Amino acid sequence: MNGALKGLKVLDFSTLLPGPYATMMLADMGADVLRIESPTRPDLVKLLPPMDAGTSTAHAYLNRGKASLALDLKQPEAVEVVKRLVLEYDILVEQFRPGVMARLGLDYETLRAINPRLIYCSVTGYGQTGPYRDRAGHDINYLATAGVSSYTGRRDTGPCPIGVQVADVGGGSFHAVMGILAAVIERQGSGEGQSIDISMTDASFAMNAMAGAAWLGGGVEAELESTALNGGSFYDYYRTRDGRYFAVGSLEPQFMAQLCQALGCEEFASQGLSPDPRVQQQIKQRLSEAFADQDFAYWCERFAALDACVEPVLSLAEASQHPQLVAREMVVEVPREDGSLQPQPASPLRFSRSHSRPTRVGGALGSDGGRVLRSLGYSEAEVDAMKAARITL
């Protein structure tokens, strides 16, 4: 089977997490992705431990299925290589600050003149316009600016850093992929490409699905532990006697009834939907006491047979071996360059006819350079000259 995106060719100028995760998704679905990497300024993810066979596991995952061409974009010869590539690779993803690609002579308008079908996706923290367009930031800053952090955390300790990079991946990566594929569909009718401006802050603000609507449409501001879903109700995490945790999401009456029966607090079974914060705190206190009375293993066994929206909080080691994730084949063995295999998180997309299985882990810097340059018509002497001048590797 071929990937669903077979035939799409993507130039990837991004580093770190948001852009590489987006292009990994495209590669998993069959797109031909070519990374354009600097030979002098390495992607910092390459240095991120732990290492496996000398390669960062994060880099091997985020860049799986992609080819690599090292180019010093400050050199005119390297810019000419990109202009040749744009004739074939009609999707481009970049993650520089606004204006950098223009200074390199690789902005959308310049490349569009070469290939009008070009889809040019820019992923930045704050977007291509506005007073923050040139401001540095990371995931935690975008979530703070977008209002997400103001109601994510505890009253006594404040906002909390989230383990998954929500703004980077949910905001940057996912929205970039959606935007690119929407532009591909539009191009089928118009015959023309377009530029796409992805702001991780914009996306994070838009993901305030319930709290944002409540404020803008109803004038109700979300605060820490103030809503049913952010700790303001019994919908929460509970510590067991041995220091592990359970997640309780028993919002509907039928689930609440099972929860209360299992914990021996049937008196609260009909009060789960109460809007009274005092009632919610009473329920939370009772649930906390009940969970703290037994060890994690006891509650795992107790809730295993119940359909109550109650699940143990698993470590990554436990999650990777969970029967549900095993059945869904969410750990995949990806070939390394030497033919051995590295376990990685699988693509979560399931197609009935198209495959989404990665072909190889992220490769070494410039590992496909000679092949790519020769395919563009460069002679061996020209390739050697560019290597000698450190334009490529």
Rank of each mutant, 00 (worst) to 15 (best):
Y132C: 06
Y132P: 01
D134N: 15
A136K: 10
G137S: 07
H138E: 10
H138I: 11
H138R: 07
D139I: 13
Y142E: 01
A144K: 02
A146S: 15
G147H: 04
V148K: 00
T152M: 10
R154C: 03
R155C: 08
D156V: 07
D156N: 13
T157H: 12
G158C: 08
P159C: 12
C160G: 03
V164K: 01
D168E: 11
V169S: 06
G171R: 08
G171H: 05
G172Q: 10
S173V: 13
V177R: 09
L181N: 05
L181P: 01
A182F: 09
V184L: 02
I185F: 11
Q188D: 09
G191T: 08
G191Y: 07
E192V: 06
G193D: 10
Q194C: 15
D197E: 14
I198V: 15
M200T: 09
D202Y: 12
F205E: 02
F205P: 00
M207R: 05
M210H: 12
A211N: 04
A213P: 00
W215N: 05
G219S: 13
E221K: 14
A222L: 00
A222E: 01
E223W: 02
L224D: 03
S226T: 14
S226N: 10
A228P: 00
L229I: 15
L229E: 08
N230P: 05
G231I: 02
R239K: 14
R239W: 01
T240M: 07
R241L: 13
D242I: 04
G243R: 02
R244D: 03
F246R: 09
G249R: 04
S250F: 06
E252R: 07
P253K: 01
M256F: 14
Q258A: 14
Q258R: 15
Q258Y: 01
Q261E: 15
Q261T: 15
G264K: 08
G264H: 13
G264V: 05
E266Q: 12
E267M: 08
F268R: 01
S270N: 09
S270Y: 02
Q271Y: 11
Q271I: 00
G272N: 02
G272K: 03
G272A: 09
L273D: 06
